[in-house]
Simulated scan of single mutants.
Amino acid sequence: MYSIDKLRNEFELHERVTATPWSGEKAISFRGPLLKDILEKNNIAGTREFEVQAYNDFMARITGAEINAYSPILAIEQQCANEDRISGLCAANQTYRPLSVDDGGPFYLIWPLRDLPQAYVLGRKSIWVWFVVAVRPVP
Rank of each mutant, 00 (worst) to 15 (best):
P112H: 11
P98R: 09
G24N: 05
R16K: 15
N56Y: 06
F50A: 03
W111D: 05
I110E: 02
V52N: 01
P137L: 00
Y96D: 02
D37L: 06
S29G: 04
S71N: 15
K41L: 10
S23R: 09
P21W: 07
I28K: 05
K125W: 05
F58K: 03
A81W: 07
M59Y: 02
Y70L: 12
L89Y: 06
A45D: 11
C90W: 01
P72H: 12
N56V: 07
K26F: 13
L109K: 01
Q118S: 10
E83M: 11
L116F: 13
G104I: 01
F30Q: 01
D57R: 07
V135F: 02
N68R: 06
T47P: 02
V135E: 00
V101K: 07
I86P: 06
A69S: 14
I67M: 03
A65V: 12
A60D: 05
I44W: 02
Y96R: 03
V52G: 00
D115S: 09
W128E: 12
E77R: 01
R48Q: 14
I62C: 10
L7D: 00
V52T: 03
W128N: 12
A69N: 13
P72T: 14
P21I: 11
E77N: 04
A92G: 03
T47I: 08
I67W: 02
S100V: 10
M1K: 00
R124S: 15
E40I: 04
